[in-house]
Write a protein that binds this DNA or RNA. Structure first.
Lengths: 165, 165
DNA sequence: TCCCAGTATCTTGATGTCGAGACATTTCCA
DNA sequence: TGGAAATGTCTCGACATCAAGATACTGGGA
């Protein structure tokens, strides 16, 4: 089946026949698919009354394992936002009762952000919902195609992930 | 080589062994790769003193073919932003002399946005630079792997692209 | 012990985007 | 032909983000 990138590439071949636009076949599809996935995620989370950024923070804490707490600095590195943004996010999540701020007993400059019981439940439910949605999207592919795709993508991502960011 | 998604998946398997997190192997890699690509694009465009959003608008006009003009509404559907955002973008591009606003001769409500000579040159140069960068990223893969990857991604994207958006 | 560079977090101001609504013009239908 | 609905663009207010600087505390060397 044809997609928007096929149309995009055709337009460039018509307007710029001198250029090799083959890289777009892969990388434009990655970008466009990511945009669609963002929208799908937003929809999936709305069923649990969560914004994507809330999910990102809550699940980072959930993945940390009991007692489900991290410093703001650790959350920064996991979510790739700036410190000002994280302060704002923690404020709002604390206001909703999904996390609480605790003083770090070992460092009086520091703070620990801990998932509340309610926050953990919301995170767990939203993750399950997200995975259901994503399984539906991947229904287009056979199990072996999924494995192939994951392996190819890993090859492209790994150089970025293993570089000092 | 290992990547961040391998670590992410391992953490979930430890914390939520009851869940099947296999979809993340594909879709989290798509999202993360897209984020890395955004940063790489930003770097590539900076060599031509362009922001990503400027590139998006200028190349939409460039792809339209001579005389390189589209209505704001057509630009909306191609760039997936809202009308308020597009008005703002056109204002700034016009201020830099990269596009100009012309009254639509056929519809007095309407406006046509036309690429200037300078705008076209910037768009063409930035596209060539982007493709060079992207070719380097894809250097990890053989030609047949790229074809496979493009085909698998097309299968995932096509249902979104061919749905009323 | 004192000081100072380093670390951790929060505050502030600027920016770009979105969503809703305003306004002008066109199109469709009675 | 008259009027309502649709269309195309712009304006405005709210919001999340970022970058840079402010504030508070720690820890090692003189």
């Amino acid at each position: 089946m044809e997609d928007e990138v096929d149309r995009l590439v055709a337009a460039w071949r018509r307007e710029r026949p001198d250029l090799d636009v083959e890289p777009l076949e892969v990388l434009s599809r990655v970008s466009r698919l990511a945009r669609h996935l963002d929208r799908a995620r937003r929809t999936a989370f709305a069923e649990h009354a969560l914004e994507p950024w809330e999910f990102d923070v809550l699940t980072a804490l959930r993945r940390a394992g009991a007692p489900y707490q991290l410093s703001p600095g650790q959350l920064l590195t996991q979510t790739l936002v700036t410190s000002g943004t994280m302060t704002n996010r923690i404020d709002r999540l604390a206001g909703k009762g999904l996390v609480q701020r605790l003083p770090d007993p070992d460092d009086r400059r520091g703070v620990l952000v801990r998932l509340t019981q309610g926050g953990q439940e919301r995170a767990d439910a939203a993750l399950a919902g997200l995975l259901d949605h994503e399984r539906a999207i991947l229904g287009e592919l056979s199990p072996s195609q999924r494995d192939d795709l994951a392996a190819l993508l890993r090859q492209l991502v790994a150089p970025f992930d293993n570089l000092a960011d």
